[in-house]
Nucleic acid binder design. Structure first.
Lengths: 333, 333
DNA sequence: ATGAAAGCGCTAACAA
DNA sequence: TTGTTAGCGCTTTCAT
């Protein structure tokens, strides 16, 4: 921690104020003489100085810090989102503090609590459970906050999400337009509102007859994908002509299971999923993907909290939709 | 922020000390009467209290915070490492603050600086450039630190890494044992010491004759993989019997390029790479992978900083090796 | 069993 | 042009 302002003041013979002013770059504003500035600069160049942000934060009640609580940072979607959000923050001199809840509501609460105790200027949350109504939360200056990706009905905080329902509808429609007759949708974690919306969208496009089945699992993982595929295979009968998955993890598990059971993924099966992975391009199958725009989501989330930090009253219950892209790989194959 | 300790003291009629004691769970230790405790507990239950960690940190000179600077958090290896490290931290009541440098040395310096200003108790760094020698850094109580994944020669800080050279040797040997005759190694970013070591290991196993070529690119990206594949194809001649890549991104780019050029990745080509991705299992090719143990790396890094925080003098220049796993996919295919 | 008081390092209004 | 001063909210030693 090198020297403190007091020490520098002591040792150069100037007052703390003077030192503060030149170190914070407001020397001219306070008309510190060039000579004084130089003396102080030189002293610092020699002895070093790292500001103690803790003390500064305590005094100014700003931490120049934004908290982000992700359900699972190992999920590439959130990793990319985090990278974009961090870039937004850095551009404004803010530091992003990322934490993950592991999809555990109790951990989510603890993470939020911990970030607030540390005085973050704003919070970005991808919730894994509905939050208690505002009235139940303790009063006091509430920290600016924005929800991303997921939105539980009734939450009054602004949410930035993709239109999961519409995207699922488009994806499913594209699958059917490619000639699929029997379509199966594998869903991890249907309690998650994003997933629930995807199911709704799937139903809109595919109907709910015999030829459009939805299988669900308790969580969003490769194991869940495997389990659903096993259930499907156990049913006997022929494979569907298209497989739609709610996430890359589920897809991965499902395809691995299929490969084990049938020695290969049938190349004529249409594969559809949310989120992009480069290796999908290598499959011989037609692959259709909804690719969310993590950078745009991050920008939207950031501009919301920036506005709130700037004093703009939070837009209660607003929901902002960010467009996603429908990508078709191997369309020519 | 609800109430402060002073306010609670004021409004309940007790002193700040008493409030502190019961709120920090040391009531019995200080023999606060049960009645007093109850009164205070009730008051807090009704009005709420969130401790101001900023003030606490300032006083105690501990932030219960660990900083992690990753080169690129969107890289799944670092994302998984971060998730594991966070779990270690949480178990000890520490909060992990993750930041990324984007492989930019200037950003790395800024990130470290910013974390130190914020008073993190320790730093975990995956460096993207050699750091200035300790003597050049400003004196003062140095923050406990550990390097991960990469280690620039001459750095005196403890490093936790895989044995990149040996792993590359094993990987290459496994490839050759599978019958590959002509082997090509695509490398992103050879300035990175981890990559340089991998090249050395490759050479050990494959020699440096005509049949063992190394191509390099300036960065670690899919674009780099594509460029190297294009260069290889432009050379004419037949494809190598095995392709080794320094990272998943490079592999992805290389294979996509190959697919474009030859309509498909030749299924008899052996593919080898570092780091695992579930979709690799779906390729018809024999795929051999070095799978690093992110959780073990995280545990080792954490135990090092925990020891340093606990006052153990840093083990100068120590290098700790964490075993990786050689995985062969589709060996039967 | 409880309280008083000093002070962590910094900022900023006000004085000089 | 520079200095004085009063805290920010908390912990902790020492009194009572």
């Amino acid at each position: 921690m090198a020297k403190t302002i007091s020490e520098i003041a002591e040792e150069t013979g100037y007052s703390r104020t003077t030192i503060t002013m030149v170190l914070s770059g407001r020397a001219s504003e306070y008309r510190i003489s060039a000579r004084t500035q130089k003396i102080i600069q030189d002293y610092v160049a020699e002895h070093g100085y790292t500001i103690n942000q803790t003390a500064r934060n305590l005094k100014t009640r700003r931490s120049h810090t934004v908290g982000f609580v992700a359900p699972e940072i190992a999920n590439p979607f959130f990793a990319r989102f985090m990278a974009s959000l961090e870039a937004c923050c850095r551009a404004e001199g803010l530091v992003l503090i990322t934490t993950s809840s592991g999809e555990d509501p109790a951990l989510e609460v603890r993470a939020l609590q911990s970030l607030m105790e540390r005085g973050v200027d704003a919070l970005v949350l991808a919730p894994c459970a509905p939050r208690p109504p505002a009235s139940a939360r303790k009063r006091g200056r509430r920290t600016p906050m924005v929800l991303v990706d997921r939105h539980y009905p009734g939450d009054s905080v602004e949410a930035i999400t993709s239109d999961h329902r519409e995207n699922a509808r488009l994806l499913t429609a594209a699958v059917m337009a490619s000639g699929a007759e029997r379509v199966v949708f594998f869903c991890g974690h249907p309690d998650n509102p994003a997933i629930a919306e995807r199911i709704a969208g799937f139903r809109e496009a595919a109907g709910d007859g015999e030829k459009a089945r939805v299988l669900t699992a308790d969580d969003d993982s490769a194991a869940a994908g495997e389990a659903m595929m096993q259930a499907l295979l156990a049913d006997g009968g022929e494979l569907p002509s298209a497989l739609v998955c709610s996430s890359l993890l589920v897809l991965e598990g499902a395809l691995q299971c299929l490969k084990q059971a049938r020695s290969a993924v049938p190349p004529e099966m249409i594969i559809a999923t949310f989120d992009y992975d480069g290796f999908l391009e290598l499959l011989p199958n037609t692959v259709i993907v909804i690719r969310q725009d993590e950078a745009a989501l991050a920008r939207a989330a950031f501009s919301s909290i920036a506005a709130q930090i700037g004093g703009k009253p939070a837009a209660e219950g607003t929901r902002t939709i960010v467009d996603a892209e429908l990508v078709r790989l191997n369309a020519t194959a």
